[in-house]
Write a protein that binds this DNA or RNA. Structure first.
Lengths: 222, 222
DNA sequence: CAGCTCGTCAAGCAAACACTTGAATAGTGG
DNA sequence: CCACTATTCAAGTGTTTGCTTGACGAGCTG
Protein backbone atom coordinates (compact mmCIF):
# COMPACT_ATOMS: atom_id res chain seq x y z
CA UNK A 1 0.00 0.00 0.00
CA UNK A 2 2.93 2.35 -0.52
CA UNK A 3 1.26 2.68 -3.89
CA UNK A 4 -1.72 4.38 -2.30
CA UNK A 5 0.16 7.64 -2.01
CA UNK A 6 1.39 7.52 -5.59
CA UNK A 7 -2.01 6.50 -6.89
CA UNK A 8 -3.69 9.29 -4.96
CA UNK A 9 -1.19 11.80 -6.33
CA UNK A 10 -1.74 10.58 -9.89
CA UNK A 11 -5.50 10.81 -9.67
CA UNK A 12 -5.29 14.21 -8.02
CA UNK A 13 -3.24 15.26 -11.03
CA UNK A 14 -5.67 13.73 -13.50
CA UNK A 15 -8.52 15.81 -12.10
CA UNK A 16 -6.66 19.09 -12.18
CA UNK A 17 -8.73 20.21 -15.16
CA UNK A 18 -11.89 19.46 -13.20
CA UNK A 19 -10.53 21.39 -10.23
CA UNK A 20 -9.84 24.34 -12.48
CA UNK A 21 -13.38 24.26 -13.84
CA UNK A 22 -14.95 23.60 -10.45
CA UNK A 23 -15.84 27.23 -9.98
CA UNK A 24 -18.64 29.06 -11.68
CA UNK A 25 -16.46 32.15 -12.05
CA UNK A 26 -13.73 30.25 -13.84
CA UNK A 27 -16.33 28.60 -16.03
CA UNK A 28 -17.60 32.06 -16.96
CA UNK A 29 -14.06 32.97 -17.89
CA UNK A 30 -13.70 29.90 -20.09
CA UNK A 31 -17.03 30.70 -21.69
CA UNK A 32 -15.79 34.18 -22.59
CA UNK A 33 -12.38 32.99 -23.75
CA UNK A 34 -14.08 30.47 -26.02
CA UNK A 35 -15.04 33.53 -28.09
CA UNK A 36 -11.43 34.60 -28.47
CA UNK A 37 -8.55 36.03 -26.47
CA UNK A 38 -9.14 38.81 -23.97
CA UNK A 39 -7.07 41.02 -21.64
CA UNK A 40 -7.53 40.60 -17.90
CA UNK A 41 -9.45 43.77 -17.22
CA UNK A 42 -12.10 43.02 -19.81
CA UNK A 43 -12.52 39.52 -18.48
CA UNK A 44 -12.95 40.98 -15.02
CA UNK A 45 -15.78 43.29 -16.03
CA UNK A 46 -17.32 40.48 -18.08
CA UNK A 47 -17.58 38.22 -15.03
CA UNK A 48 -18.31 41.04 -12.59
CA UNK A 49 -15.30 40.53 -10.36
CA UNK A 50 -12.39 42.66 -9.26
CA UNK A 51 -9.29 42.58 -11.41
CA UNK A 52 -7.22 41.05 -8.62
CA UNK A 53 -9.65 38.23 -8.10
CA UNK A 54 -9.96 37.61 -11.82
CA UNK A 55 -6.20 37.54 -12.13
CA UNK A 56 -6.08 34.85 -9.49
CA UNK A 57 -8.69 32.76 -11.24
CA UNK A 58 -6.70 33.13 -14.45
CA UNK A 59 -3.54 31.99 -12.70
CA UNK A 60 -5.44 28.95 -11.53
CA UNK A 61 -6.55 28.13 -15.08
CA UNK A 62 -3.02 28.74 -16.27
CA UNK A 63 -1.53 26.33 -13.75
CA UNK A 64 -3.98 23.70 -14.96
CA UNK A 65 -2.84 24.35 -18.51
CA UNK A 66 -6.29 25.33 -19.74
CA UNK A 67 -5.29 28.81 -20.91
CA UNK A 68 -2.23 30.52 -22.32
CA UNK A 69 -1.10 34.11 -22.29
CA UNK A 70 0.36 36.59 -24.71
CA UNK A 71 1.72 39.97 -23.82
CA UNK A 72 1.02 43.01 -25.96
CA UNK A 73 2.35 46.28 -24.59
CA UNK A 74 1.30 46.25 -21.01
CA UNK A 75 -1.75 44.15 -21.34
CA UNK A 76 -1.80 40.42 -21.11
CA UNK A 77 -4.19 38.55 -23.34
CA UNK A 78 -5.52 35.24 -22.11
CA UNK A 79 -6.84 32.60 -24.51
CA UNK A 80 -7.91 28.98 -24.22
CA UNK A 81 -5.00 26.61 -24.61
CA UNK A 82 -6.83 24.77 -27.37
CA UNK A 83 -10.17 23.58 -28.69
CA UNK A 84 -10.34 20.60 -26.39
CA UNK A 85 -10.78 22.95 -23.45
CA UNK A 86 -13.88 24.42 -25.07
CA UNK A 87 -15.05 20.90 -25.78
CA UNK A 88 -14.55 19.91 -22.18
CA UNK A 89 -16.57 22.92 -21.06
CA UNK A 90 -19.33 22.01 -23.52
CA UNK A 91 -19.39 18.44 -22.26
CA UNK A 92 -19.54 19.58 -18.65
CA UNK A 93 -22.51 21.80 -19.43
CA UNK A 94 -24.36 19.07 -21.20
CA UNK A 95 -23.73 16.48 -18.51
CA UNK A 96 -25.04 18.98 -15.97
CA UNK A 97 -28.07 19.71 -18.12
CA UNK A 98 -28.84 15.98 -18.24
CA UNK A 99 -28.19 15.08 -14.65
CA UNK A 100 -28.61 18.07 -12.42
CA UNK A 101 -32.28 18.52 -11.68
CA UNK A 102 -32.39 22.25 -11.19
CA UNK A 103 -30.27 23.49 -14.05
CA UNK A 104 -33.49 24.21 -15.84
CA UNK A 105 -34.77 26.36 -13.00
CA UNK A 106 -31.45 28.21 -12.73
CA UNK A 107 -31.47 28.79 -16.48
CA UNK A 108 -34.98 30.20 -16.35
CA UNK A 109 -34.06 32.45 -13.43
CA UNK A 110 -31.25 33.93 -15.46
CA UNK A 111 -32.57 33.80 -19.01
CA UNK A 112 -36.31 34.05 -18.49
CA UNK A 113 -38.80 31.67 -19.98
CA UNK A 114 -37.31 30.40 -23.21
CA UNK A 115 -40.17 28.20 -24.28
CA UNK A 116 -41.74 30.87 -26.49
CA UNK A 117 -38.50 31.48 -28.36
CA UNK A 118 -37.97 29.64 -31.61
CA UNK A 119 -34.66 27.83 -31.91
CA UNK A 120 -32.73 26.59 -34.88
CA UNK A 121 -30.06 23.90 -35.02
CA UNK A 122 -26.69 24.28 -36.68
CA UNK A 123 -27.78 21.93 -39.48
CA UNK A 124 -30.90 23.98 -40.11
CA UNK A 125 -28.95 27.23 -40.15
CA UNK A 126 -26.42 25.76 -42.57
CA UNK A 127 -29.20 24.79 -44.91
CA UNK A 128 -30.89 28.17 -44.75
CA UNK A 129 -27.63 30.01 -45.28
CA UNK A 130 -27.11 27.97 -48.41
CA UNK A 131 -30.51 29.02 -49.66
CA UNK A 132 -29.76 32.63 -48.66
CA UNK A 133 -33.24 33.06 -47.25
CA UNK A 134 -32.25 34.25 -43.82
CA UNK A 135 -30.45 37.11 -42.04
CA UNK A 136 -28.00 35.98 -39.37
CA UNK A 137 -27.16 38.36 -36.53
CA UNK A 138 -24.13 38.05 -34.30
CA UNK A 139 -25.26 39.83 -31.14
CA UNK A 140 -22.03 39.48 -29.18
CA UNK A 141 -19.74 42.46 -28.52
CA UNK A 142 -18.05 43.71 -31.67
CA UNK A 143 -14.60 42.47 -30.60
CA UNK A 144 -15.87 38.92 -30.46
CA UNK A 145 -17.43 39.28 -33.90
CA UNK A 146 -14.09 40.47 -35.24
CA UNK A 147 -12.28 37.54 -33.65
CA UNK A 148 -14.53 35.15 -35.56
CA UNK A 149 -18.15 34.82 -36.63
CA UNK A 150 -20.48 32.65 -38.65
CA UNK A 151 -19.70 33.30 -42.32
CA UNK A 152 -22.39 35.61 -43.62
CA UNK A 153 -23.52 36.92 -40.23
CA UNK A 154 -23.90 40.64 -39.53
CA UNK A 155 -22.57 42.19 -36.34
CA UNK A 156 -25.34 43.63 -34.17
CA UNK A 157 -24.06 43.88 -30.61
CA UNK A 158 -27.02 43.56 -28.31
CA UNK A 159 -26.94 47.17 -27.09
CA UNK A 160 -26.83 48.57 -30.61
CA UNK A 161 -29.47 46.21 -31.88
CA UNK A 162 -32.35 48.69 -31.83
CA UNK A 163 -30.48 51.06 -34.15
CA UNK A 164 -29.69 48.29 -36.57
CA UNK A 165 -33.14 46.85 -36.87
CA UNK A 166 -34.31 49.33 -39.50
CA UNK A 167 -31.44 48.37 -41.83
CA UNK A 168 -32.71 44.81 -42.04
CA UNK A 169 -35.00 43.79 -44.89
CA UNK A 170 -38.46 44.05 -43.32
CA UNK A 171 -39.70 40.62 -44.35
CA UNK A 172 -36.57 38.59 -43.65
CA UNK A 173 -36.37 35.69 -41.22
CA UNK A 174 -33.78 36.60 -38.62
CA UNK A 175 -31.59 34.20 -36.68
CA UNK A 176 -29.53 35.51 -33.78
CA UNK A 177 -26.69 33.77 -32.01
CA UNK A 178 -24.20 34.58 -29.30
CA UNK A 179 -21.74 32.77 -27.03
CA UNK A 180 -23.41 29.49 -26.35
CA UNK A 181 -26.53 27.77 -25.13
CA UNK A 182 -26.69 29.74 -21.87
CA UNK A 183 -25.84 33.17 -23.22
CA UNK A 184 -28.53 35.84 -22.75
CA UNK A 185 -27.82 38.05 -25.71
CA UNK A 186 -29.51 35.97 -28.40
CA UNK A 187 -32.57 35.52 -26.20
CA UNK A 188 -32.79 39.26 -25.63
CA UNK A 189 -32.34 39.90 -29.35
CA UNK A 190 -35.11 37.49 -30.31
CA UNK A 191 -37.45 39.06 -27.76
CA UNK A 192 -36.67 42.57 -29.00
CA UNK A 193 -37.09 41.59 -32.63
CA UNK A 194 -40.38 39.78 -32.19
CA UNK A 195 -41.71 42.65 -30.09
CA UNK A 196 -41.08 44.78 -33.16
CA UNK A 197 -42.97 42.41 -35.37
CA UNK A 198 -40.01 40.59 -36.89
CA UNK A 199 -39.79 36.83 -37.33
CA UNK A 200 -36.79 35.89 -35.24
CA UNK A 201 -35.23 32.73 -33.81
CA UNK A 202 -32.02 31.92 -32.03
CA UNK A 203 -29.33 29.39 -32.87
CA UNK A 204 -29.59 26.77 -30.14
CA UNK A 205 -25.91 26.98 -29.24
CA UNK A 206 -23.31 29.61 -30.01
CA UNK A 207 -20.35 30.61 -32.10
CA UNK A 208 -17.75 28.36 -30.46
CA UNK A 209 -19.81 25.25 -31.19
CA UNK A 210 -20.31 26.38 -34.78
CA UNK A 211 -16.60 26.90 -35.26
CA UNK A 212 -15.65 23.64 -33.59
CA UNK A 213 -18.04 21.78 -35.86
CA UNK A 214 -15.91 22.97 -38.76
CA UNK A 215 -18.68 25.09 -40.26
CA UNK A 216 -17.77 28.19 -42.30
CA UNK A 217 -16.50 31.17 -40.34
CA UNK A 218 -14.95 34.56 -41.08
CA UNK A 219 -12.64 36.78 -39.11
CA UNK A 220 -11.84 40.47 -39.41
CA UNK A 221 -8.49 42.12 -38.71
CA UNK A 222 -8.04 43.97 -35.44
CA UNK B 1 -26.63 43.80 -12.62
CA UNK B 2 -29.36 41.95 -10.74
CA UNK B 3 -28.54 39.33 -13.34
CA UNK B 4 -25.12 38.81 -11.86
CA UNK B 5 -26.54 36.73 -9.04
CA UNK B 6 -28.66 34.59 -11.35
CA UNK B 7 -25.82 34.17 -13.81
CA UNK B 8 -23.43 33.17 -11.05
CA UNK B 9 -25.94 30.63 -9.76
CA UNK B 10 -26.45 29.17 -13.22
CA UNK B 11 -22.75 28.79 -13.87
CA UNK B 12 -22.20 27.33 -10.43
CA UNK B 13 -24.85 24.78 -11.39
CA UNK B 14 -23.29 24.07 -14.76
CA UNK B 15 -20.00 23.15 -13.14
CA UNK B 16 -21.49 20.80 -10.59
CA UNK B 17 -20.17 17.82 -12.54
CA UNK B 18 -16.70 19.35 -12.43
CA UNK B 19 -17.04 19.96 -8.71
CA UNK B 20 -18.00 16.33 -8.23
CA UNK B 21 -14.97 15.17 -10.17
CA UNK B 22 -12.64 17.72 -8.59
CA UNK B 23 -11.31 15.19 -6.12
CA UNK B 24 -8.86 12.45 -6.86
CA UNK B 25 -10.76 10.11 -4.56
CA UNK B 26 -14.03 10.63 -6.35
CA UNK B 27 -12.27 10.17 -9.67
CA UNK B 28 -10.93 6.84 -8.40
CA UNK B 29 -14.50 5.90 -7.55
CA UNK B 30 -15.70 6.82 -11.02
CA UNK B 31 -12.83 4.84 -12.50
CA UNK B 32 -13.92 1.76 -10.56
CA UNK B 33 -17.61 2.23 -11.29
CA UNK B 34 -16.81 2.50 -14.99
CA UNK B 35 -16.11 -1.26 -14.72
CA UNK B 36 -19.59 -1.96 -13.37
CA UNK B 37 -21.69 -1.43 -10.26
CA UNK B 38 -20.20 -1.98 -6.82
CA UNK B 39 -21.36 -1.91 -3.19
CA UNK B 40 -20.03 0.80 -0.92
CA UNK B 41 -17.70 -1.32 1.14
CA UNK B 42 -15.89 -2.70 -1.89
CA UNK B 43 -15.49 0.76 -3.32
CA UNK B 44 -14.04 1.88 0.00
CA UNK B 45 -11.35 -0.80 0.04
CA UNK B 46 -10.68 -0.17 -3.65
CA UNK B 47 -9.85 3.48 -3.01
CA UNK B 48 -8.24 2.89 0.38
CA UNK B 49 -10.62 5.01 2.43
CA UNK B 50 -12.93 4.40 5.34
CA UNK B 51 -16.49 3.36 4.56
CA UNK B 52 -17.88 6.55 6.10
CA UNK B 53 -15.69 8.75 4.00
CA UNK B 54 -16.41 6.77 0.86
CA UNK B 55 -20.10 6.99 1.57
CA UNK B 56 -19.81 10.76 1.72
CA UNK B 57 -17.96 10.92 -1.56
CA UNK B 58 -20.66 8.75 -3.10
CA UNK B 59 -23.36 11.07 -1.78
CA UNK B 60 -21.53 13.92 -3.41
CA UNK B 61 -21.47 12.11 -6.76
CA UNK B 62 -25.11 11.23 -6.29
CA UNK B 63 -26.13 14.84 -5.67
CA UNK B 64 -24.35 15.78 -8.88
CA UNK B 65 -26.29 13.08 -10.70
CA UNK B 66 -23.19 11.21 -11.82
CA UNK B 67 -24.10 7.93 -10.13
CA UNK B 68 -27.24 6.03 -9.23
CA UNK B 69 -27.97 3.45 -6.56
CA UNK B 70 -29.75 0.16 -6.29
CA UNK B 71 -30.49 -1.66 -3.10
CA UNK B 72 -30.05 -5.43 -2.85
CA UNK B 73 -30.66 -6.85 0.61
CA UNK B 74 -28.69 -4.64 2.88
CA UNK B 75 -26.09 -3.56 0.45
CA UNK B 76 -26.35 -0.61 -1.83
CA UNK B 77 -24.82 -0.86 -5.24
CA UNK B 78 -23.57 2.29 -6.89
CA UNK B 79 -23.19 2.58 -10.65
CA UNK B 80 -22.41 5.37 -13.08
CA UNK B 81 -25.57 7.20 -14.15
CA UNK B 82 -24.69 6.60 -17.80
CA UNK B 83 -21.93 6.31 -20.36
CA UNK B 84 -21.48 10.03 -20.70
CA UNK B 85 -20.06 10.13 -17.19
CA UNK B 86 -17.36 7.68 -18.19
CA UNK B 87 -16.77 9.75 -21.29
CA UNK B 88 -16.41 12.89 -19.23
CA UNK B 89 -13.89 11.16 -17.00
CA UNK B 90 -11.96 9.97 -20.06
CA UNK B 91 -11.92 13.48 -21.49
CA UNK B 92 -10.75 14.95 -18.22
CA UNK B 93 -7.86 12.47 -18.10
CA UNK B 94 -6.81 13.20 -21.62
CA UNK B 95 -6.97 16.97 -21.21
CA UNK B 96 -4.83 16.60 -18.10
CA UNK B 97 -2.38 14.36 -19.96
CA UNK B 98 -2.04 17.01 -22.68
CA UNK B 99 -1.83 20.10 -20.54
CA UNK B 100 -0.55 19.26 -17.11
CA UNK B 101 3.19 19.05 -17.21
CA UNK B 102 3.80 16.54 -14.48
CA UNK B 103 1.14 13.94 -15.16
CA UNK B 104 3.86 11.92 -16.81
CA UNK B 105 6.02 12.03 -13.72
CA UNK B 106 3.09 11.14 -11.47
CA UNK B 107 2.20 8.26 -13.76
CA UNK B 108 5.75 6.95 -13.67
CA UNK B 109 5.84 7.24 -9.88
CA UNK B 110 2.76 5.09 -9.64
CA UNK B 111 3.10 2.73 -12.59
CA UNK B 112 6.83 2.51 -13.01
CA UNK B 113 8.63 3.07 -16.27
CA UNK B 114 6.24 2.08 -19.03
CA UNK B 115 8.48 2.77 -21.95
CA UNK B 116 9.69 -0.83 -22.22
CA UNK B 117 6.17 -2.18 -22.33
CA UNK B 118 4.63 -2.85 -25.70
CA UNK B 119 1.20 -1.36 -26.22
CA UNK B 120 -1.55 -2.18 -28.65
CA UNK B 121 -4.41 0.02 -29.82
CA UNK B 122 -8.05 -1.03 -29.89
CA UNK B 123 -7.95 -1.17 -33.69
CA UNK B 124 -4.91 -3.41 -33.61
CA UNK B 125 -6.47 -5.70 -31.04
CA UNK B 126 -9.68 -5.92 -33.07
CA UNK B 127 -7.69 -6.98 -36.09
CA UNK B 128 -5.71 -9.58 -34.21
CA UNK B 129 -8.80 -11.00 -32.55
CA UNK B 130 -10.31 -11.46 -35.98
CA UNK B 131 -7.24 -13.40 -37.07
CA UNK B 132 -7.36 -15.37 -33.81
CA UNK B 133 -3.61 -15.11 -33.45
CA UNK B 134 -3.56 -13.70 -29.95
CA UNK B 135 -4.55 -14.53 -26.36
CA UNK B 136 -6.32 -11.71 -24.54
CA UNK B 137 -6.17 -11.57 -20.75
CA UNK B 138 -8.53 -9.59 -18.57
CA UNK B 139 -6.46 -8.99 -15.45
CA UNK B 140 -9.10 -7.14 -13.44
CA UNK B 141 -10.83 -8.72 -10.45
CA UNK B 142 -13.16 -11.57 -11.44
CA UNK B 143 -16.32 -9.60 -10.61
CA UNK B 144 -15.41 -6.95 -13.14
CA UNK B 145 -14.76 -9.61 -15.76
CA UNK B 146 -18.20 -11.05 -15.09
CA UNK B 147 -19.81 -7.63 -15.39
CA UNK B 148 -18.38 -7.28 -18.87
CA UNK B 149 -15.21 -8.08 -20.79
CA UNK B 150 -13.70 -8.00 -24.25
CA UNK B 151 -15.33 -10.79 -26.24
CA UNK B 152 -12.86 -13.65 -26.37
CA UNK B 153 -10.77 -12.55 -23.38
CA UNK B 154 -9.85 -14.93 -20.58
CA UNK B 155 -10.16 -13.89 -16.96
CA UNK B 156 -6.80 -13.84 -15.18
CA UNK B 157 -7.09 -11.58 -12.13
CA UNK B 158 -3.69 -10.15 -11.45
CA UNK B 159 -3.09 -12.06 -8.23
CA UNK B 160 -3.95 -15.38 -9.81
CA UNK B 161 -1.99 -14.68 -12.93
CA UNK B 162 1.04 -16.80 -12.03
CA UNK B 163 -1.12 -19.91 -11.68
CA UNK B 164 -2.77 -19.33 -15.00
CA UNK B 165 0.33 -18.78 -17.04
CA UNK B 166 1.02 -22.47 -17.61
CA UNK B 167 -2.42 -22.97 -19.16
CA UNK B 168 -1.59 -20.55 -21.93
CA UNK B 169 -0.23 -21.84 -25.24
CA UNK B 170 3.54 -21.38 -24.85
CA UNK B 171 4.13 -19.57 -28.12
CA UNK B 172 1.08 -17.28 -28.11
CA UNK B 173 1.21 -13.51 -28.21
CA UNK B 174 -0.53 -12.25 -25.10
CA UNK B 175 -2.36 -8.97 -24.70
CA UNK B 176 -3.47 -7.86 -21.25
CA UNK B 177 -5.92 -5.12 -20.39
CA UNK B 178 -7.53 -3.74 -17.26
CA UNK B 179 -9.48 -0.66 -16.20
CA UNK B 180 -8.03 2.11 -18.27
CA UNK B 181 -4.88 3.88 -19.33
CA UNK B 182 -3.69 4.50 -15.76
CA UNK B 183 -4.52 1.13 -14.28
CA UNK B 184 -1.55 -0.84 -12.89
CA UNK B 185 -2.78 -4.35 -13.40
CA UNK B 186 -2.06 -4.71 -17.10
CA UNK B 187 1.41 -3.24 -16.60
CA UNK B 188 2.13 -5.72 -13.85
CA UNK B 189 0.80 -8.58 -15.96
CA UNK B 190 2.98 -7.64 -18.93
CA UNK B 191 6.04 -7.41 -16.70
CA UNK B 192 5.32 -10.78 -15.09
CA UNK B 193 4.69 -12.44 -18.43
CA UNK B 194 7.78 -11.10 -20.15
CA UNK B 195 9.87 -12.04 -17.13
CA UNK B 196 8.69 -15.60 -17.78
CA UNK B 197 9.70 -15.43 -21.38
CA UNK B 198 6.30 -14.75 -22.90
CA UNK B 199 5.61 -12.17 -25.59
CA UNK B 200 3.16 -9.80 -23.94
CA UNK B 201 1.72 -6.35 -24.56
CA UNK B 202 -0.99 -4.27 -22.98
CA UNK B 203 -4.02 -2.63 -24.52
CA UNK B 204 -3.34 1.09 -24.35
CA UNK B 205 -6.60 1.86 -22.61
CA UNK B 206 -9.06 -0.35 -20.77
CA UNK B 207 -12.33 -2.20 -20.85
CA UNK B 208 -14.64 0.83 -20.48
CA UNK B 209 -13.16 2.49 -23.56
CA UNK B 210 -13.48 -0.75 -25.51
CA UNK B 211 -17.13 -1.10 -24.57
CA UNK B 212 -17.93 2.55 -25.24
CA UNK B 213 -16.39 2.24 -28.69
CA UNK B 214 -19.07 -0.34 -29.43
CA UNK B 215 -16.58 -3.18 -29.84
CA UNK B 216 -17.67 -6.74 -29.06
CA UNK B 217 -18.10 -7.59 -25.39
CA UNK B 218 -19.44 -10.46 -23.32
CA UNK B 219 -20.94 -10.64 -19.87
CA UNK B 220 -21.43 -13.54 -17.49
CA UNK B 221 -24.31 -13.99 -15.06
CA UNK B 222 -23.73 -13.17 -11.40
C1' DC C 1 -36.62 -10.14 18.32
C1' DA C 2 -31.39 -10.18 19.27
C1' DG C 3 -27.48 -9.65 17.10
C1' DC C 4 -25.19 -8.91 12.88
C1' DT C 5 -23.78 -6.43 8.59
C1' DC C 6 -23.88 -2.58 5.66
C1' DG C 7 -24.51 2.06 5.02
C1' DT C 8 -25.55 6.85 6.51
C1' DC C 9 -25.51 10.79 9.60
C1' DA C 10 -23.53 14.34 12.84
C1' DA C 11 -19.95 16.74 14.98
C1' DG C 12 -15.39 18.30 14.94
C1' DC C 13 -10.91 19.68 13.04
C1' DA C 14 -7.29 21.05 9.85
C1' DA C 15 -6.40 22.38 5.16
C1' DA C 16 -7.87 24.57 0.94
C1' DC C 17 -10.56 28.06 -1.33
C1' DA C 18 -12.91 32.55 -2.89
C1' DC C 19 -12.85 37.02 -2.24
C1' DT C 20 -11.06 41.58 -0.35
C1' DT C 21 -7.68 45.20 0.27
C1' DG C 22 -3.48 47.37 -0.37
C1' DA C 23 1.16 47.20 -2.04
C1' DA C 24 4.54 45.83 -5.68
C1' DT C 25 6.04 45.27 -10.55
C1' DA C 26 6.37 45.63 -15.80
C1' DG C 27 5.75 48.27 -19.51
C1' DT C 28 4.29 52.80 -21.93
C1' DG C 29 4.29 57.64 -23.00
C1' DG C 30 4.99 62.32 -22.04
C1' DC D 1 12.61 59.61 -15.33
C1' DC D 2 7.93 60.53 -13.61
C1' DA D 3 3.29 59.51 -13.91
C1' DC D 4 0.22 56.23 -15.53
C1' DT D 5 -1.96 51.75 -16.79
C1' DA D 6 -2.40 46.81 -16.54
C1' DT D 7 -1.41 42.99 -13.94
C1' DT D 8 0.30 40.30 -10.16
C1' DC D 9 1.48 39.41 -5.36
C1' DA D 10 0.73 39.07 -0.26
C1' DA D 11 -1.91 39.07 3.74
C1' DG D 12 -6.27 38.63 5.98
C1' DT D 13 -11.03 36.71 6.55
C1' DG D 14 -15.01 33.81 6.27
C1' DT D 15 -16.58 29.55 3.96
C1' DT D 16 -16.14 25.02 2.08
C1' DT D 17 -13.97 20.64 1.80
C1' DG D 18 -11.91 16.08 3.17
C1' DC D 19 -11.23 13.20 6.59
C1' DT D 20 -11.99 11.11 11.33
C1' DT D 21 -14.69 9.22 15.05
C1' DG D 22 -18.66 7.55 17.09
C1' DA D 23 -23.57 6.97 17.02
C1' DC D 24 -27.72 5.61 14.46
C1' DG D 25 -30.93 3.13 11.12
C1' DA D 26 -32.34 -0.50 7.70
C1' DG D 27 -32.56 -4.96 6.60
C1' DC D 28 -31.04 -9.76 6.94
C1' DT D 29 -30.40 -14.23 9.71
C1' DG D 30 -30.74 -17.33 13.40
Amino acid sequence: MADRVAKAALFDGLVSAAKALASGRRAEIVDVLAQGERPVEEIATEIGQTVANTSQHLQHLLRAGLVRTRRDGNRIYYALADDRVAELWAMLRSVAADHVADIERLATDYLGDRRQLQTVTRAELTRRLRHRDVVVLDVRPAAEYRAGHVAGALSAPIDELTHKIQDLPPDADIIAYCRGPYCVYADQAVRTLTRRGRRAARLEDGYPEWARAGLPVNTLPN
